[in-house]
Amino acid sequence: MRRISKVLLFVLALSPVAWLAWGLLHGTLGANPAETIQLQTGRWALKFLLVTLAVTPVRRVTGWNVVIQYRRMLGLFAFFYASLHFTSYIVLDQFFDWNAMFRDIPKRPFILMGTLAFLLLTPLAITSTKGWIRRLGRRWQTLHRLIYLAACCAIVHFAWKVKVIVGDPVIYAVILAALLGFRAIWFLRKRNARPRRAVPQSA
């Protein structure tokens, strides 16, 4: 049952890229197919990031511990779409002109933010294996908190990209704020719930 649901999720998560590939071959991606590819891979990277970040709150609120089993796959799909998105920048926008890219990335704040988000996600993808989880021990969780920062960079990247900030960037930002806010509240409540240690008196 768990196997089947994982395979199902895997196939479902690949459907956006299948749709793009089909559209590219059949010319249904509009007058600017490269832009469609770029926008869609970026959006799906963000969507998977947000879904990954929703796993823990959903688990805490509903008590469905089973959802945690899908977290790694969701996170890796976020990285998968982010990689496609970044590749589209290298290939479609810059066509492997590395010099131009090194000039372009620091000069355009929104590209810098996007690159930063991608760089932050990379070590998380690499250390997502069982071997790395074991090797890193408690540090693994600390390292993987980088996803909060990566998600923030990705949202800023999205908002700085558009000409007028209305609609989708705002919606994504609100969802991220809610997901991070949930964690902040959870953290504070847990801390306050802990019995306070008596302040040692110097006598």
Binding site: A31, N32, V91, L92, D93, Q94, F95
Partner: peptide, 30 residues
């Protein structure tokens, strides 16, 4: 991002876009 004149100029790329190259639609590469 935008100026009053906004003449097409590959040597001036204010903040948002690199104007040195372009993508002729429906082409894929800029």
């Amino acid at each position: 991002w935008y100026g009053f004149y906004s003449n097409v100029n590959p040597n001036v790329s204010p903040v948002r876009w690199d104007q040195s190259r372009e993508k002729r639609l429906p082409g894929l590469f800029a």
